[in-house]
């Protein structure tokens, strides 16, 4: 009985925690960008502007839920829910601390891949149903980008899986007791991180949105809470990728015992989130074809090489 209660607590905690974290990230990102851009950032609502998130939420919830008359209504409504759904589902496999995991699946990583593949639908459907040329271009770009970067994402993690011998996330963390996978799997880490940014389509890989070219691309026509769902979905995506990097390459909750495991996890995760924000503040956006050729001509061979070498070393060690 107690175990069930604990499990329910974990589920509710993860759900509420991640969603409110994603909301809080709006503030974190705006404030950090401001610091790096010689500005003040939000500072009107509450001390240091910390209630800005609240104000934003109230505003976005009370905005008119408007659907343009020329869109494909059903698909238009469906599209933003997919990204929320798939990203939230992915959080189920993340072990935040020993035993604190929604579903300790033995196919954990595969489940994540499945969910992130489904996430591509949100861009394609939003871009298509908006019935707008800019949205369509964004949707087409997004589909191509996400599908190709998924390939390298999967391949980049093969090294980790070979070394652990399991898809289970808890096993992966436990396998890093001696040395974090970022050391033996450095190439895999770099590729996973790049692919992760591409999957969450953030700058520098925000081609489906490309504000200065496509005017927000696939979500041009969205407003109110439907737009908010894309927005929160994006921040959830960053959190998810940061969590995964922590679990797969930086030993998850592992760390010196003066802090509890859960805190270690959070600290590591936040470092990566901030790194993503910093990237956004620094880099320009490559062109669409440059992004694609970079992926297929550089990342794919590198990822394959990584799998080959890891496999060979593991085999020879047996």
């Amino acid at each position: 009985m107690n175990e069930t209660l604990f499990q329910i607590l974990v589920i509710v905690g993860v759900l509420l925690g991640t969603v409110s974290l994603a909301a809080a990230l709006i503030y974190v990102e705006r404030k950090m960008l401001a610091v790096w851009q010689q500005r003040l950032g939000p500072n009107r609502v509450g001390p240091f502007g910390i209630f800005q998130v609240l104000a934003d939420m109230i505003k976005i919830f009370f905005k008119e839920d408007w659907i343009p008359p020329f869109v494909d209504k059903k698909v238009f409504i469906l599209a933003p829910t997919i990204i929320m759904l798939t990203v939230l589902m992915s959080f189920a496999i993340i072990p935040f601390a020993p035993g604190v995991v929604v579903a300790d699946l033995n196919i954990g990583l595969l489940f994540f891949f499945a969910m992130s593949s489904l996430g591509a639908y949100t861009i394609v459907l939003a871009g298509w149903s908006s019935n707008n040329k800019y949205s369509l271009l964004g949707g087409v770009r997004g589909a191509a980008q996400m599908i190709s970067y998924e390939v390298f994402m999967g391949l980049s993690l093969m090294g980790v899986i070979i070394q652990t011998g399991s898809f289970n996330m808890t096993d992966i963390v436990n396998a890093q007791k001696d040395v974090w996978f970022v050391v033996p799997q450095f190439i895999g880490f770099v590729i996973f991180m790049i692919a992760g940014i591409a999957e969450t389509h953030r700058l520098p890989f925000d081609l489906p949105e490309a504000e200065s070219e496509l005017i927000s691309g696939f979500h041009s026509e969205y407003s109110g809470m439907k737009f908010g769902m894309f927005f929160v979905g994006e921040y959830l995506g960053i959190t998810l990728v940061s969590c995964l990097i922590t679990v797969l390459f930086f030993g998850g909750w592992l760390g010196p015992s003066f802090l509890p495991p859960f805190i270690w996890f959070i600290i590591k995760m936040f470092c990566f989130i901030l790194f993503f924000v910093l990237l956004r503040a620094t880099l320009p956006r490559p062109r669409y074809d440059q992004l694609m050729s970079y992926g297929w001509k550089l990342l794919l061979p590198l990822a394959l090489l990584n799998v080959l070498i890891t496999g060979a070393i593991v085999l020879s060690a047996q």
Partner: peptide
């Protein structure tokens, strides 16, 4: 120009 190419930060610095 930097913003046209997707860079967020320069525009704030140059306007400063």
């Amino acid at each position: 120009f930097a913003q046209d190419l997707g860079m967020m930060t320069p525009v704030f610095l140059t306007f400063y």
